[in-house]
Amino acid sequence: MPSETPQAEVGPTGCPHRSGPHSAKGSLEKGSPEDKEAKEPLWIRPDAPSRCTWQLGRPASESPHHHTAPAKSPKILPDILKKIGDTPMVRINKIGKKFGLKCELLAKCEFFNAGGSVKDRISLRMIEDAERDGTLKPGDTIIEPTSGNTGIGLALAAAVRGYRCIIVMPEKMSSEKVDVLRALGAEIVRTPTNARFDSPESHVGVAWRLKNEIPNSHILDQYRNASNPLAHYDTTADEILQQCDGKLDMLVASVGTGGTITGIARKLKEKCPGCRIIGVDPEGSILAEPEELNQTEQTTYEVEGIGYDFIPTVLDRTVVDKWFKSNDEEAFTFARMLIAQEGLLCGGSAGSTVAVAVKAAQELQEGQRCVVILPDSVRNYMTKFLSDRWMLQKGFLKEEDLTEKKPWWWHLRVQELGLSAPLTVLPTITCGHTIEILREKGFDQAPVVDEAGVILGMVTLGNMLSSLLAGKVQPSDQVGKVIYKQFKQIRLTDTLGRLSHILEMDHFALVV
């Protein structure tokens, strides 16, 4: 994948999101292997301009796509893939009243899908469409860049269908997702969380590099694949309309690839034109409109599966009536509230959605109805927002919020430890010299600072030695090549209790 991002070429006709291997024109390309080798690009942008032909009021008969309808489940399912879809609609009884809503608040519980998330729908649909058009064949390999849930859905379907599955996901995604993927037989590649989507090191860039190296491999490409919004247009939206008897006044959905909100909203605009569509985008993402909503100094966020630093091709923002931004604290607070007060075992993005819903639905009156999409299960986040310690460490809970008995030293300040200034190293000294210094002084790690004293990161003896043994660096290389740029900081005025929580999850903390 090139470091400079080429513009994806656009073909003359058809839909841009065809499933299957992508040609340089962004659509299915038939021909000899030699032709494909000559024409197939190194990668295709996940934010390529959409060429979708959908228009409100256009006859369904003019759609270029294969459409399906929700099917009634048999008493005995032939395999677990038949437990994807037909998820329950559940009334939220307490939270709406707590925040003064007059309307009825309903939750579409997508964590009841077989793999635990709304992404099971698009995973199965992308595979079925690729099999139907002859792209996927027995023994082929599926590769997908994902925040985890699409990966789980694909790995689940691949396990049943017999495909090899490789999932490329950023490091910030939970260990629970990784464990589930491994249990399903998927191979996992992790990428830096802070890598831009168009960087060769991003999950998108690495996935395309693997595709170019592995024979008979395919990126189904949830960011561009029409099967993504079509899955929701054909099934999720129809289920909502049936469950609500066609009567709903507002739908609120958090947005990642945009397939969920695009597919549902398009069908609702056709069948229930008075329904307002509300999009939820986390602070630090750029999906919301108008652009002024996205202006923030924050560039990272903890909530998973929603928000991006690019506009995915499948996201149709014209069908969203209003956007709201959400933050991590309210997302996790509301997710825990949904679990504790409503018994809905949902993930953090569901918290984002409901946090926005109780604001947006203030305009609705008694007798009206708001539906929220709860995308995934708490299963993926047992060591994250479900953990009091994690919430404390991230600053989303305060010590006084917890009532468990603490040891005698818990409320003492870090400054009472009488710490001395640490050994520091410059980023320009060599790895070999740094190892000598650390061994001589008896230290395992040291902060790396520039000549102005600005902290650049941390270097550890173990990481340097393993990097040297693996051949990633040489003793003569500058130590700046092996620094940890993500590390926890703590102030002298913070409590030892807070430091204790940090050290339970990290090997060190830097006192500043």
Rank of each mutant, 00 (worst) to 15 (best):
E131W: 01
I122L: 06
L268K: 06
L124Q: 15
L230A: 07
I152F: 01
D234L: 12
T68R: 09
R91G: 12
P2Q: 10
A207Y: 03
M250L: 12
R276G: 01
C52V: 03
L220A: 05
L181W: 05
K36W: 06
L101D: 01
V160L: 11
K271F: 14
S217C: 06
R51G: 07
E9R: 07
I214S: 01
T262I: 05
S175A: 11
K211H: 01
I127R: 01
S3P: 09
E128N: 11
W208F: 07
A107V: 13
T135S: 01
I76P: 10
K36L: 13
P64T: 01
E176A: 08
C275L: 06
C244S: 01
E9W: 04
A69Y: 14
I219A: 05
E34F: 10
Q243T: 13
T236H: 06
N113V: 07
D234K: 11
T257P: 01
K98I: 14
S32L: 08
A226F: 01
K82L: 03
R209S: 09
R190T: 08
H17S: 09
A237N: 07
G14C: 01
G100S: 05
Q222A: 01
A48Y: 07
R190N: 08
L42V: 05
N216L: 05
R91F: 08
F111A: 04
N225R: 03
K98M: 13
V180W: 01
T150C: 03
E144W: 05
E201W: 15
S73A: 12
L154V: 08
K97I: 12
G148R: 01
V118F: 06
P138R: 12
A71I: 13
P215S: 09
E4G: 09
R18K: 11
I264T: 10
P273E: 08
T236L: 09
I76L: 11
C275A: 15
C165L: 07
F111W: 01
D35W: 01
T13Y: 01
N149E: 03
H66A: 07
D234W: 01
T135P: 04
K94L: 11
D234Y: 11
H232K: 10
C103P: 11
P215N: 01
K267S: 04
D35P: 09
K25P: 12
K39V: 07
A183W: 01
E40W: 10
T191Y: 04
K36A: 08
K75L: 15
A69F: 13
G256S: 04
A158T: 12
P229L: 08
E213F: 09
P33Q: 11
C272M: 15
T260N: 05
T68W: 07
D129E: 14
T235M: 10
H65R: 01
F112L: 06
N149S: 01
D179Y: 14
L56K: 08
T236I: 12
E187R: 01
F112Y: 04
S199E: 05
K177L: 03
M89A: 04
R121H: 01
L77C: 07
L248R: 03
E4V: 10
E128V: 11
K39R: 14
D133N: 14
I166G: 03
G263H: 04
Y233W: 14
D234G: 08
A71L: 11
P145V: 03
T193I: 09
T135D: 01
S217V: 01
I152R: 01
K267G: 10
T68C: 09
E270M: 05
E187Y: 05
P49W: 11
K137I: 08
V160T: 01
A107Y: 05
S254V: 13
C15A: 05
D79F: 15
F99R: 07
T53P: 01
K269V: 01
I219G: 01
T235V: 06
G31F: 12
G134F: 06
L230V: 15
L105E: 01
I166Y: 06
G162T: 05
N113F: 01
S73E: 01
L106I: 10
I167L: 10
K75M: 14
Y233R: 01
G259I: 01
E144F: 05
E37M: 01
D86G: 14
A237W: 01
W43H: 10
L101G: 04
D221Y: 13
T235L: 09
K72R: 10
P64L: 09
H66K: 01
P78E: 06
D245K: 01
V10R: 07
K98R: 04
S23Y: 09
G263Y: 03
K269C: 11
R91K: 13
P145G: 10
C244A: 01
D234A: 11
I44C: 04
G256H: 11
P6V: 04
E213S: 06
S147I: 01
L77Q: 15
M169F: 04
S175Y: 14
P6S: 15
P229A: 01
L241P: 01
D221S: 01
E213T: 14
P74L: 12
I219W: 06
T193Y: 09
I122P: 01
H22W: 06
I95P: 01
L77K: 07
A38P: 07
E4L: 08
T13S: 01
C272I: 07
S175F: 10
V252A: 07
E37W: 15
E131M: 05
D140G: 07
V180G: 01
G139N: 06
K94P: 01
L136P: 14
